[in-house]
Design a protein around this nucleic acid. Structure first.
Lengths: 412, 412
DNA sequence: CTGCATTTTGTGGATATTCACAAACGAACT
DNA sequence: AGTTCGTTTGTGAATATCCACAAAATGCAG
């Protein structure tokens, strides 16, 4: 093994295109080199036969979206990110992708780029794998420079995004100018989405989203803050875009929650705005509010992500604060709690379940594992104890609000 | 008629007790003179036979409560207030009141006091009625002086009450002192009640309440502001008093609303407090809030008077304000309204009725005069149009709140 | 332990809800 | 006039709710 040839020893600071050609000669197949954002860096020139995927990549100077999406979905990138060896990828005819082998160019755990070797002239052997391994190592030094530049730019972009999120900006014109100088295509309609995971490594799960959709994002502690929006869809109906975004979020977030079973993943997003960029602050605040509420009421807000879907929970924190300022004590609820303490009963739970079930007897009884008539009896008692009428929607709604408000302290 | 004797011509500035004795001699029956507050002014001394009512009045220097209550209830005072002639009152054994005749002492329309003539020695004739008429006239000049003093004191009391209501006071001790100097017995537990009638003469209806219960009150435009509370019930259970007060209010207010059919009578009261008098401000604000809400939602708050019974309406104005501050437009409701406009339908009304009926199909259908299945169909359509789920209590409650909020502007 | 009050569960019948399916209606369009 | 489409009303059957009444089960004090 130690006698293995060093294929790229004579290649210290040459051009990346030369490297691509060199690898192509060695493995006798077309080679493509991309950066970590799947932008084309170099490609071998000799190969006359190629597949639509490579052709599109070279023409567009970036790997096509649908190819990336498919490879993320099939777990190819996950493999490339986690291991140092080349990955053999079977052909995927439907997206015009022929059989090929890929390897990630890495420095420690940072992915700097990828080398792709198509298998058109001949199949790639384990020996070719070793060639690719060495090629990936050889490419590192050059890519680090690119990476360095990108990191600095990334830094400036991050700072700019924080300015937008916190509203520390002078004017709309200044924002537009700065965005242009940073080569950021600002969307016309946008919203802020926050994804938070206690101790999990979120970026792993989010990479597909971030990469595929060219989103701008910022990390704040355990939160990832995404600016979602598209500028390319010009004049598309506002509603259409909004629905698409929401669909996308609902889908990916629910998947995310399922995957990351280790820690709890919470996500929320603000409303979509299409006016000036000053609105970003609002959407960010709304997203923060959604996340806060979802932490307080995980069960109640299950499946809800958007601020506009929060229902009563949109008001609840503010209302709670108002009650406290006014010094309002809810005597009705206190009475029921006292009754529960005195008699070792679960009237409060019964009431809450009943209200959560929108007043459906059978649903409530099933949830509580009690007989329907028992539930009926308890509700009659509750009405007596609290001096209320559960048939009255005003009282029922008020009680619902007050019950959830009372939970805020308890659940903390 | 012009030759009728002038019984009291020789009586210019004599003592009131002398006047009572003089009348008693003329009508040969016991006489009692009271001021407008039913406090004893003078009584004839000759009569040896009398009834328990008169006896108690003299001993307590005021007409007993239960007698007053009964006479108000039977409409005796209403008669006395509206006419200038003596009123013949049959015996009311159950309250120890023998047969008698009474006349109000009036200057123009102001009642200064009353003269009571018992019928024990002989029945009173029309001639006696003329004597009483002339006696009432003769008493006016002396009572005006009393009235003058009372008016001045009333003025100072009114000012003091306004100070309490608006919170313009220095300390609890100062309040107590001022109350004492004005000879006002401040209650230990109290609440503020506001009764408002557009153009009606409220005092007429409220007199029974005000008199019988020795309440303090203030008039502000078309509003009468009452300070309700009792100091005599010492150490009574807080709850007991509270319930009694509420019962009293609910009863009298509903009666009041029934009687005064001319203009709309609106009444509301704040919570009951038993702490310091600084809380009066809070109860007053709460009462004002209740009245405000009842004007905005007359149908929804029918039968509700107390601030604590307002349910969601307690929050609604505040919520509305927040929504406006935030610039939140409710797109879901807008959609439904748009649908109604486009298709000449009544989806909004259907939804509101359904929510008001706490989600009961049959009740809603009956209220709307439509078939149950029609209602079911409409609700399904509403869910589609608004993109909501009416089975979900959060969404249902939020919708209920938003619907009522949206009405605030519309109903103004 | 027994008696007593409260709570839970059961039964049955009148009434409501939910759902699928179909007929009837009216307005708009060709 | 005929054809849509959306809406309303009807029917029937399975399921749920409401009510009164009663039988267990539970808990507590004498």
């Amino acid at each position: 093994m130690s006698s293995q040839p060093r294929y790229f020893q004579q290649y210290p600071h040459a051009d990346m295109d030369e490297l691509a050609d060199l690898i192509a000669e060695l493995v006798q197949n077309p080679i493509t080199i991309e950066d970590s954002d799947h932008k084309l860096i170099a490609y071998s020139s000799h190969g006359d036969s190629t597949d639509p995927a490579r052709w599109s990549t070279i023409m567009g100077r970036r790997v096509p979206e649908k190819v990336l999406t498919r490879l993320w979905k099939d777990g190819v990138f996950q493999e490339l990110l986690t291991q140092d060896d080349p990955v053999h990828i079977p052909a995927k005819e439907d997206i015009g992708l022929g059989k090929r082998v890929a390897i990630a160019i890495k420095r420690s755990n940072d992915v700097l780029g990828y080398i792709w070797a198509q298998e058109v002239n001949r199949a790639l052997t384990p020996e070719d794998d070793e060639i690719l391994r060495q090629a990936a190592k050889a490419a590192v030094s050059r890519l680090i420079q690119r990476q360095g530049k990108r990191k600095a730019e990334e830094q400036r972009r991050t700072e700019f995004l924080w300015e937008l999120l916190l509203g520390n900006h002078s004017s709309e014109a200044a924002i537009r100018q700065k965005a242009e100088s940073l080569q950021m295509q600002m969307p016309t309609t946008y919203l802020i989405c926050i994804v938070e995971a206690a101790g999990a490594r979120l970026d792993q799960y989010l990479y597909p989203l971030l990469m595929r959709d060219k989103l701008y994002w910022v990390v704040d502690g355990s939160q990832i803050i995404l600016l979602i929006g598209r500028s390319d869809e010009k004049k598309d109906e506002w509603n259409g875009l909004l629905k698409k975004v929401e669909q996308f979020l609902a889908d990916s977030l629910s998947k995310l929650v399922m995957q990351a079973s280790e820690g709890k993943v919470i996500a929320g997003y603000g409303r979509a705005y299409s006016g000036g960029y000053a609105q970003i602050v609002k959407s960010y605040k709304e997203a923060l509010h959604a996340v806060k509420v979802k932490k307080l009421f995980p069960r109640e807000t299950e499946g809800i992500y958007g601020y506009h879907q929060l229902g009563i929970y949109r008001y609840l924190l503010q209302l709670k604060k108002w009650e406290e300022d006014e010094g309002y004590r809810n005597e009705r609820l206190d009475k029921l709690k006292q009754y529960d303490r005195d008699n070792q009963t679960a009237m409060l739970e019964t009431l809450e379940t009943f209200l959560d079930a929108a007043g459906k007897m059978n649903v409530t009884a099933q949830l509580l594992h009690i007989h329907t008539n028992t539930l009926g009896y308890r509700l009659r008692r509750i009405e007596e104890i609290m001096g209320i009428d559960l048939e009255n929607m005003n009282q029922r709604a008020a009680l619902y609000l007050e019950l959830k408000m009372a939970k805020i302290n308890r659940e903390q």
